[in-house]
Amino acid sequence: MSGNGNAAATAEENSPKMRVIRVGTRKSQLARIQTDSVVATLKASYPGLQFEIIAMSTTGDKILDTALSKIGEKSLFTKELEHALEKNEVDLVVHSLKDLPTVLPPGFTIGAICKRENPHDAVVFHPKFVGKTLETLPEKSVVGTSSLRRAAQLQRKFPHLEFRSIRGNLNTRLRKLDEQQEFSAIILATAGLQRMGWHNRVGQILHPEECMYAVGQGALGVEVRAKDQDILDLVGVLHDPETLLRCIAERAFLRHLEGGCSVPVAVHTAMKDGQLYLTGGVWSLDGSDSIQETMQATIHVPAQHEDGPEDDPQLVGITARNIPRGPQLAAQNLGISLANLLLSKGAKNILDVARQLNDAH
């Protein structure tokens, strides 16, 4: 009898209710805020589980004197976190989706994509230029951005401005803007500013005609071990179906173009009346040469937790077992079709030249 009692006690200790789920994140304040929001949602869904947040620095956090596009290494903000995932030191990792490459290392998958916040870019102005827009900034004003995508589009749109690289986390960039006289304004992701509670610093939100956004911008991705079915089931509740389908289309477009950090590629997606609209573009580094096109596809946005595919093969690095396969494939095909259209119009040449120029500098 006593033996059975011990077995029952052991089973209770090993039951999922007692389990601590370890969540990996970057150390920056924004990353911690984003991770806290994901953990809060998981806690609400699984009140019996405990969650421990483990923060670590990544290569991208450490190399702050070089433009991201020049470092010449993929997975700048993800490699150390993936290493911890691989060694079973954490069970899942919360990322900004735009930091996750469209091809993940073997053994990993994006197990959830959370509801997207505003994906557009924002302009934050130096205190002396508050009330201005990019259009009304004085001639030769210097605007800071760490992104080739932003610089290429904005140089084309605002030729009277000069664009220079600015690195560091959000706090560091804002301090550089406010305390030094080098920059009249800087460009940042609206979602990051909003998550930090800095709505009052948003001086201008850039519309798609001015600057399309990065693939996955404004959404959070939760990376897990691809074979860890328990954790895949656990994080599945975080999937937002519309965000998922938009981001599958965007990531398929980028992957098929073979774009990345070192080339200016941008997108804009919208879901309306059962249609998914995808606009994508590529630019030369100075913005003088560009190709942009829009395509659409009829896609039914499923309700969360309709029964999805059981075999769960990944699409552009994403596993969404609780979302039907048909809409996911339709979104992926839309991204591939748009990429093929741009490639047929000469996108590869623009991107190759951009890559060579970026590598040469």
Rank of each mutant, 00 (worst) to 15 (best):
T59V: 07
E306V: 14
S45P: 09
K70T: 09
H160K: 14
S165E: 06
E250M: 00
L285S: 05
E117S: 06
E80H: 07
S75I: 10
W283Y: 13
H199T: 06
A40Q: 07
A249W: 02
T102A: 11
N340L: 10
V224P: 05
S165I: 09
T25W: 00
E179H: 10
C211S: 12
M56Q: 13
R255M: 12
E209G: 07
F51N: 05
R175W: 11
V90M: 10
V267N: 15
T243K: 06
L30K: 01
L351I: 08
Q217T: 02
S146E: 03
Q181W: 10
E310H: 15
L30D: 00
A331E: 04
E293R: 09
A122L: 05
W283C: 06
Y277W: 03
L238F: 01
L97N: 04
K157E: 06
G335A: 04
W283I: 05
V20I: 10
D99T: 02
V301L: 07
G259E: 10
E80S: 09
V93E: 00
R325K: 08
Y46P: 02
T190N: 15
L193D: 03
L244E: 02
V301P: 00
K98L: 02
K70Q: 08
G60E: 03
Q34E: 01
E139T: 08
L334G: 15
K70P: 08
R251G: 02
N322S: 07
H120S: 12
N169Y: 08
G203L: 02
K157W: 05
L161A: 05
P208S: 09
I187A: 08
A297R: 02
R325A: 09
G218E: 03
V265L: 10
A339T: 13
Q217F: 03
K157M: 12
K74W: 03
R32Q: 14
D230H: 03
H256I: 04
D240F: 10
G197E: 05
E139G: 10
L329I: 09
H120D: 09
S290R: 08
D91S: 08
A303Y: 06
S344Y: 07
V353L: 09
R156M: 14
A55C: 08
L42I: 10
E139P: 01
L245H: 09
M196V: 11
R255S: 12
A214G: 08
I205A: 08
I33N: 11
N340G: 11
D233L: 03
K128D: 08
Q296G: 12
R201N: 07
L188F: 08
P324Y: 07
D359Q: 05
A151L: 11
V39R: 08
T243V: 01
E86A: 13
I113R: 01
E293T: 03
L92H: 04
H199Y: 13
L351K: 01
K140P: 11
E89K: 10
K70R: 08
Q180D: 07
K27E: 10
G218P: 00
K70L: 08
G24W: 01
D233A: 07
T66I: 14
G144E: 05
M271E: 15
R167P: 04
I350W: 15
G111R: 03
G192F: 00
L97W: 02
P119D: 04
K87V: 07
L238K: 02
R173Y: 01
G236C: 15
R149V: 02
T279E: 07
N358P: 15
G48Q: 14
N200S: 09
H160G: 11
P302T: 14
K79V: 09
V38F: 05
